[in-house]
Nucleic acid binder design. Sequence first.
RNA 1: GCCCCCAUAGUCUAGCGGCCCAGGACGUCACCCUUUCAAGGUGAAGAUCGCGGGUUCGAAUCCCGCUGGGGGUACCA
Length: 518
Amino acid sequence: MTDTVSERPKGIPEDLKEVRVRFAPSPTGSLHIGGARLVMYNVLFAHGQAPREGKTGKFILRIEDTDRKRLIEGSVENLMDGLRWLGLEWDEGPDVGGPYAPYVQSERKHSYAEVAERLVENGHAYRCFCTPERLQAVREEKQKNKLPPGYDRHCRNLSAEEVQAKLDAGETHVIRFKMPLDGETVVPDLLRGNIVYQNDTLEDLVILKTDGYPTYHLAVVVDDHEMDITHVTRGPEWIPTAPLHVQLYKALGWDLPIFAHMPLILSPNGGKLSKRHGGVSLNDFREAGYLPEALLNYFALLGWSLDGKTEIYSFDDLLKHFRLENVSPSPSTFDRQKLDWLNQQWINHHLAVEDLAKRVLPWLMKDGVIEQGPEDETHPRYAEVLKLTGLLKDRIHFLTDAPDLMSYFLVDELPDYDSALLVPKKVEPAQALAALEAFAAKLPEMDLADLDGTEATMRSMAEELGMKPGQFFMPVRVAATGRTQSPGLFETLEAVGKDRLMERLGIAVGKLHALANN
RNA sequence: GCCCCCAUAGUCUAGCGGCCCAGGACGUCACCCUUUCAAGGUGAAGAUCGCGGGUUCGAAUCCCGCUGGGGGUACCA
């Protein structure tokens, strides 16, 4: 599609009709958030930027399972589930099919072997019979002599007879690509401009393995070409092998796609983000109570920016503004605190209460705070949960916080709590007791739905008892909830309800008596 | 070791030759609001734009070198 990239390249060439991008993970485990971010960039590019620039755009999911030894059962399902949870959909893929099916590399094996054979016949590749042991020895030798490592091209110049003899003898072999020995290979990168490699520093990498499966290098090039991929997006770890890919395209006479190596996500201590920094797989975040909205918002902020000022983006906002060529090429450190802040922002201020309430339901059920039921408004306690969500949402930072925060409203019996909590600082136990008894006596005639009325009543009771309002309120709060922190007292009392409140006041009074007798 | 990429506050970023002795956000600190805890509001500290050379009337912005960080160096992706 392009041979060179100018200083500030456009992501989508004028003459292109359809943008086709793909995410091609290998099913070897759970989806890393770096991968999830890459998928988001792809979707935004294909479904947002492409239409904005008058093109059609397709995002394809393709599974690269050519390393048969590392396959992990269930990875593909897990991956698809995670992406759909994020709201990222693909137009073509293993489960949804499409005009370029199959979308699983192991099912496309024939193409790769054919291409590899063609390259051997062309003189662009050769059969290599070297044993792993010999390769190991060569590598060590080169290392020791401080030479560039890599294969010594031992089999590159075997004669046709020698090759035939080895084949007849049944020796196994791989196919290696013949890199040019001099000159340079240019890798045009959308984010970085031209990356230039001196060919004499490059090596002849394996493209077809002994087991007949291609390596990544052959497989991507063939698949990307066959699937008419226009933009190759992937992690930066592929930059060093990109010259091989460029040479493969050339040897096969195929147009080059546009390469866009995306930036890496670093762990706070430098280096790749790893498990020890509190989870790196999408599942970890999902289980920790993060919202897809917050994750997508954070991914966008990490390495990209609309104007340097806007912080909160919905996925729709991103579709309207994201540009692939504006992604920064520099790696960025994963900042858990900023993600947490975004998650909280979304929960506290940007999600509709009804929406939040539905998302909270499964967590409440999981913790047994409410009974099992549907995860939507048909759950018998939805109305109650909706009301509590409105009351408590500003205190929820993660969905996982909800069960604990809501439990004292939803459960009839409070778990036992420390009697000392009933007695605020600078207040005598006897005073706290008097406050609770006075309040319990008054409660039957109060209308808790009248918040202002409750407040007025309670303030005058405090005055009569010679207590500051706060000193009077705290014992009541603790009696009602079993803890010192809650939403506004009057709303809290109303939500707890008069009957349960009477009962809980009784328990608290008992506790204070016991405290006094000690 | 060799090859490659990257470089604005602790972190994410704005900046594309004069509007910048550098703007926004997270985090930190202070104050305000207040019945607790959040949420919210206001403000502060924090960057000699990694260092050194150029180019230019003028550079965070362009060029070169260095340093630092990162990636790759497999019949793994």
